[in-house]
Simulated assay, not measured.
Amino acid sequence: MTDSARTALPLPDYDHLPLGGLESRIRSLTADQVDELLAYERAHADRLPVTEVLSARREQLRAGAEPTPGDPSALRPEQHGRTAGSPVSPATSPQPSNPPPHGTPDQRGKPKGDRT
């Protein structure tokens, strides 16, 4: 499948969706659209958890389930408003401490430069 065919998928960001986001987002698709995604998945990554989710949804639709809007708060990788990383900063870091010397856990450790 070419890049233009990949963007023509029912979910253009399909390749970047985490499984939790995919489960919610496919709720809005028709059975034919789910079939299209399932064929694409099998031809490319063929990830078992993804094919299981898509197959289960296809069976639900074939059994009479109706497409729904899905969860609008589902994980959406196309919305990168936040930066990743730790919220730790020098202001929130703990005071440095040294481990106690071996054999005497009740004594506080001393920096090597202060030993006499």
Score class of each variant (00 low, 15 high):
Glu59Ala: 13
Gln107Phe: 06
Leu17Ser: 04
Arg58Asp: 11
Gly64Glu: 05
Pro72Thr: 04
Ala39Gln: 15
Val34His: 00
Arg6Gly: 04
Pro67Ile: 01
Pro67Asp: 00
Thr7Gln: 09
Ser86Thr: 15
Gly85Gln: 05
Pro94Thr: 00
Pro18Gln: 05
Arg57Lys: 14
Pro49Asp: 04
Gly64Ile: 02
Pro67Tyr: 01
Glu59Ile: 13
Ser97Thr: 13
Gln33Thr: 03
Glu78Leu: 04
Lys110Glu: 13
Glu78Asn: 04
Ala56Tyr: 12
Gln107Leu: 08
Ser73Glu: 15
Asp71Gln: 05
Leu61Ile: 00
Ser97His: 14
Gly85Asn: 02
Ser86Trp: 05
Arg62Cys: 06
Asp15Cys: 10
Glu66Val: 09
Thr116Asn: 14
Leu11Gly: 00
Ala74Lys: 00
Ala43Ile: 04
Ala39Cys: 11
Gly113Ile: 13
Ala91Ile: 08
Ala65Leu: 08
Leu75Gly: 06
Leu61Trp: 00
Gln107Trp: 05
Leu75Ala: 10
Asp35His: 11
Gly113His: 09
Pro100Cys: 05
Met1Val: 12
Glu41His: 13
Pro18Tyr: 02
Ser97Arg: 12
Pro77Thr: 00
Gln79Cys: 08
Glu23His: 11
Ser89Gly: 09
Thr104Met: 04
Arg76Gly: 06
Thr116Lys: 10
Gly81Thr: 08
Leu38Ile: 03
Leu48Tyr: 14
Gln60Ile: 02
Pro49Gln: 01
Arg6His: 02
Thr2Ser: 12
Met1Cys: 10
Asn98Leu: 14
Asp35Asn: 11
Asp106His: 07
Ile26Pro: 03
Gly70Met: 01
Arg58Asn: 13
Asp35Tyr: 10
Gly113Pro: 06
Ser86Asp: 10
Glu23Gln: 12
Leu37Tyr: 06
Gln33Val: 01
Ala91Gln: 06
Ser24Gly: 10
Glu78Ala: 07
Arg25Ile: 02
His102Phe: 09
Ser24Val: 06
Pro72Gln: 01
Val34Leu: 04
Arg76Glu: 07
Pro105Phe: 03
Ser73Asn: 14
Leu61Cys: 02
Leu29Ile: 02
Val34Trp: 01
Val53Lys: 15
Gly81Ala: 09
Asp32Glu: 15
Pro12Val: 01
Gln33Glu: 15
Thr92Asn: 12
Pro69Asp: 05
Thr2Cys: 08
Val50Cys: 11
Pro72Cys: 04
Thr7Tyr: 07
Glu23Trp: 07
Arg6Ala: 02
Thr83Gln: 07
Lys112Trp: 12
